[in-house]
Amino acid sequence: MADQTQALRREPLANAHGGSGGVRLTPAKPASRISLRARADAVGALSSALGLDLPIRPSASAISNGRMALWLGPDEWLVIDENGADLMAAAASAGAMHSATDVSHRNTAIIVSGPGAATAINSGCPQDLSLKACPVGKCSRTIFGKAEIVLLRMSEDTFRVECWRSFSPFVFGLLAEGAEDAAQ
């Protein structure tokens, strides 16, 4: 009998490596994600259902136990769970009107860390990433070269760059170039 072929799921940035003396580029581990839209009156119920306060201040984030909620717009959040929790079910249990779309496999993320992290990201992103303009915890949807990204400053010299999986080779490549420049 012929051997059965098995389909394996490959991470978009499997085996990707890059960086320089001042910047480390690491593909983030797989996570579940939802794109969440809701009006102000549903924020309370969704916050309790998800177990963290959905931020309502522009560019704010909330992070606890491997779960993060990033403010993208006045009624829009990107919720990420690094432990693979079922975020769709959690949001559905809120009992408040909202729209949630599972984007776990649409996105992937790259962790950019090191003293040159901001410089590497600025090679393709026009935002002011000084600590004054972009403190720890600030997040925003923005542009990186030709790709749209969601940027989160996790610490003084660590950023999470979320991008669509089809753009991830481009984003990783341009970050690698920026990392080389940042090392000079």
Partner: peptide, 11 residues
């Protein structure tokens, strides 16, 4: 006016 800050025209 929604983000409350100046951003690049690229966005």
């Amino acid at each position: 006016p929604y983000c409350g800050e100046d951003r690049s025209e690229l966005e």
